[in-house]
């Protein structure tokens, strides 16, 4: 009896020692296996599908067609290239405004003031709000006949705008919505960067007689450059992949004229509205390559800046 118990303790100790010695992998393996199963397999599968003519039902047989999809997609000036253009326009526009406004608001909030808590809560609200609900909210505000946006303009004698309902203005209006929701994100990152800055350079510049603007432009912003780059990368990746507000305001296919159809919306439509999985996979692979390329360029610039 006691011998069995003794043996158990030995086994337990052995296992314990084994587990402790290999804790690096015991800890990391479950998460990594999970991610590998749900990430690596899909990426490989998408790559494979992009060379096939899979469409219709997911159970339907399909053939290997080589680079046919890539040829079709890359010569498609009706849906693919306009979608690339819209993605660039949306992401570029959103990033420019979000970074400039985000830095401006962070500077406003930097030094302590009365009511700081209230302002900090106010900028946090858009950030946590459900994007689909945010899309619906702006859909009502930008409604040409009953929305508040045109009512607001009429107070200043400005004629009513079509906002989301016109193919010419819809994408720009959605850039505005994205800027409204995500500028606080940039502000928070920049604020964290500002608080971590050393005070000496600013003080030294002040002693040397630099005014507020000079200290900001020649001292604070250069010191903040790595933080700004981090904010641009984080926000840029998410802006490229924007889906929720576009789908919530314009529905399938980015509106009746595809006026807000970005690459992500296009790939989603190809997959789940048209069920053309092969072609959708090609678009996704090209989209993914573009994202990786952009990150690579940004990281090169960052390395150059660090030198």
């Amino acid at each position: 009896m006691s011998q069995v118990a003794h043996g158990d303790v030995g086994a337990w100790e052995k296992t314990s020692r084994w587990v402790n010695r290999r804790r690096k992998w015991v800890f990391a393996a479950p998460a990594m296996i999970f991610v590998a199963l749900l990430l690596v397999f899909p990426v490989v599968w998408t790559l494979y599908l992009s060379f096939t003519n899979s469409k219709g039902s997911v159970r339907a047989p399909f053939d290997f067609t080589g680079f046919e999809n890539y040829f079709t997609v890359l010569t498609d000036t009706e849906r693919f290239w306009p979608a690339v253009g819209r993605t660039a326009y949306f992401t570029g526009g959103a990033l420019v405004f979000e970074v400039i406004l985000g830095i401006a608001i962070a500077l406003l909030l930097w030094k302590p003031f009365k009511g700081e808590r209230l302002v900090r809560v106010a900028i946090l609200l858009p950030l946590v709000a459900t994007p689909v609900a945010v899309g619906m909210m702006w859909r009502l505000i930008f409604e040409p006949n009953i929305g508040f946006a045109n009512e607001f303009l009429s107070w200043f004698g400005i004629p009513a705008q079509p906002w989301l309902s016109s193919p010419d203005t819809a994408l720009s209006t959605l850039v505005f919505v994205d800027v409204w929701q995500w500028t606080p994100m940039v502000t928070l990152i920049i604020l964290a960067g500002l608080t971590a800055l050393p005070e000496e350079p600013d003080e030294a510049a002040r002693v040397d007689g630099a005014n507020w603007w000079q200290r900001l432009w020649y001292v604070t912003l250069p010191l903040l450059a790595p933080t700004i780059t981090a904010a641009v990368v984080l926000r840029g990746i998410d802006a490229l992949k924007t889906f929720d507000i576009l789908y919530a305001t314009k529905g399938k296919g980015g509106g009746s004229f595809h006026e807000v159809e970005t690459l992500n919306i296009y790939a989603y439509g190809l997959s789940f509205d048209y069920n053309r999985y092969g072609q959708a996979s090609t678009v996704l692979i090209l989209f993914f390559l573009m994202i990786i390329g952009l990150i690579w360029i940004l990281s090169l610039r960052k390395k150059a800046a660090n030198k």
């Binding site: 998460a31 899909p42 599908l49 997911v58 997959s271 959708a280 996979s281 994202i291 990150i295």
Partner: peptide
Amino acid sequence: RFVMGRSAMVVLLARIIPGVSLLVPWYF
């Protein structure tokens, strides 16, 4: 603690990849 840079990169890739490209194979 063990500075597993490359493994961390794989997991962070999950933040970069467009969700649709995962949805198609998952759906399959």
